[in-house]
């Protein structure tokens, strides 16, 4: 079951790299978060811990429902060009992602050599998700893609926390989820402001400050 969910997350992560339009990227993020929720739920069912159920529910609320809806709302409101602006085309991005995955696998083999296969797989998938999130932040032009990239990185870390370490302490997970939500809102507000002052949200054109 865990392996199935991990595969799902992996496919969705790669799929983010072939997105051309903003709504598609947000939708993809929503699906990835849904799988993250399922991983946590699966864990909660097996552990039979009330706290983990609450954490799973919170993930569903924050990452699957609230944040994607907020981003969609924002995109509609600022009415910008929906194209993502790719510095690297989908094919090359996918090839890069494969290399990142390979790198993550080598790194994890060195780090946790003597762990069971499922833990190893979870480790590799999590690190790959973090790396791809960072990749999206760097190789896509819009401010919105930087927000999504950041959220993807955080998804990777959540996955790592819940699949290898059995979830962080209950209260810690709650505050972190809350913090991620606040962060998404605030970066969203700044994106709105960028659009207002610059009349675009292309971060590579923000070059007033130098030296």
């Amino acid at each position: 079951m865990t392996l199935f969910l991990l595969t799902g997350i992996m496919i969705l992560t790669y799929a983010m790299l072939v997105c051309h339009r903003i709504p598609a990227l947000i939708q993809n993020f929503r699906l990835q978060s849904l799988f993250l929720f399922l991983v946590t739920l699966d864990f909660a069912v097996r552990q039979k811990e009330a706290g983990v159920f609450v954490v799973a529910g919170l993930l569903l609320l924050v990452k699957v429902i609230l944040i994607p809806s907020f981003l969609n709302h924002l995109v509609k409101k600022i009415r910008v060009d929906e194209r993502l602006g790719l510095f690297l085309n989908p094919l090359l991005s996918l090839i890069a992602a494969l290399f990142l995955t390979w790198g993550a696998a080598v790194f994890c083999a060195w780090l946790v050599s003597d762990s069971p296969a499922v833990v190893f797989a979870a480790f590799v998938v999590s690190i790959t998700v973090v790396l791809v999130g960072f990749f999206i932040m760097v190789f896509r032009m819009k401010a919105l893609t930087q927000i999504v990239g950041l959220l993807v990185m955080e998804n990777g870390i959540f996955l790592l926390a819940s699949s290898i370490a059995g979830g962080m302490p209950f209260f810690v997970e709650i505050v972190i989820a809350f913090d991620v939500f606040v962060c998404a809102i605030i970066t969203g507000i700044f994106m709105y402001r960028i659009n207002k002052v610059f009349t675009h949200i292309e971060v590579h054109r923000l070059t007033d400050l130098k030296g």
Binding site: V130, F134, M137, A143, Q146, L150, M153, E154, I157, L160, I176, C183, I186, T187, F190, M191, R193, I194, V197, F198, V203, L206, D208, L209
Partner: peptide
């Protein structure tokens, strides 16, 4: 809320948030 200050704030939030995310890892 000038161009320069909004640009600075954006870079600040995004770069520091990435850093902080690595710290969470």
């Amino acid at each position: 809320n000038t161009k320069a200050s909004v640009e600075a704030a954006w870079k600040y939030v995004i770069i520091c948030s990435v850093g902080i995310t690595l710290a969470l890892l």
